[in-house]
Structure formats: structure tokens, C-alpha cells
Amino acid sequence: MQTNNEVELVNQILLKDQQAYTEFIHRYQAVVFNVAWRMLGIREDAEDAAQDTFLRAFRFIKNFDRTRPIVPWLKQIAVNVCFDRLKRIPEEQPLEEDTLPYPDPAPGPETQASQRLRRERIHLEILKLPPRYRAVIELRHFQELRYHEIARVLNRPLSDIKSDLFRARKLLAAALQELNTGKSV
């Protein structure tokens, strides 16, 4: 349920109040940027995607159900914006070393790796997944949507969503296993 403040902000945006636009962006830009960051992994791309997310949100804000919370709606738009961007990149194109957000660390025992390095490594593994796997991981694990909700957001059959999610997890779990045993990923 939205707070009155949020409803008022949306109402002001519908009245084309410039201050309301600015306040709306300031309030939610970090949340939207983080969705894009997790899915794209490149700061400039994530910032561009966040901008596109707000532009799309403003275009469709008149359709927004004001009894619902706004953050999940914005996050779902962000996933679709990122997914559309990723679809434009050929799927077989491997993730290039210089486009990775962190340097691919040298293999070594997990016990020596810092916690930060380990988290960066997990993010790297997410970024190596095909776009549709990334989208379902984002929606299930970071936005905590149920299967049928993910299917609705991505406009895809429920069976595809489950299959993609389970395969994505299998790939990530395998990478995690290799990380734990100190093998190169």
C-alpha cells in the first residue's frame, strides 16, 4: 500500500509539476539504478537504463494503480528496460574481459578471498548468464516475485520462467561450487 506522500507525489506528476518529477527521481533513483547495475554490470549502461526506466515510468504513470506500492512497479520496469537492452546484444557474444565491472580474479582458495571479492565474483557469475536467466534471477531473488508474477512481468509462459530460473540457479550453484573449491571459473 502506498503512503499518502507517494500518492500525492504521483498526483503532482500527473499535473506535470516539475518539482514532483525531480523529487520522484531523487527518491527512487538509487533503487532503480541498483536493478540496472545487477543486470548490466556496467555503470554507464546502468545509469542510462535507469534514466530510460524513469522516462518509461512517467509515460505510463497514468496507468499506475495508486493503491499499490510504487517501488516494485519501478523495479519491474527497470528489469524490462535492461532486458530489452540485453536482447539487442547477440546472445552468443561472450562477456568481454574489459567490460566486466571487476577484474576476473586469479583462482585461489576461497579461504583467502575477501568477502567483498567473493560478492563481486557472484555478481560476475550473474553477468555471465544469458539475459533471460539474469531477468528471472533479478525478479525472483532481488524482487521476491512469485513464478506467475515473473511470467506476467516478462510476458512469458510460466513453464519457461520455471525452466530458466532452475537452469540459472544450476549454473550459479556450479560456479559457486568451483569458487568454494578454489578452481578457476
Binding site: Y21, I25, N34
Partner: peptide
């Protein structure tokens, strides 16, 4: 991940 710049001017 911290956001290091304000996106509002570009969007507006």
C-alpha cells in the same frame, strides 16, 4: 552499489 551522480538533470 552507490549511485555516484544525480540522474535527475538528464531525465528532466
Amino acid at each position: 552499489e552507490p549511485l555516484t551522480r544525480d540522474l535527475a538533470p538528464g531525465i528532466l
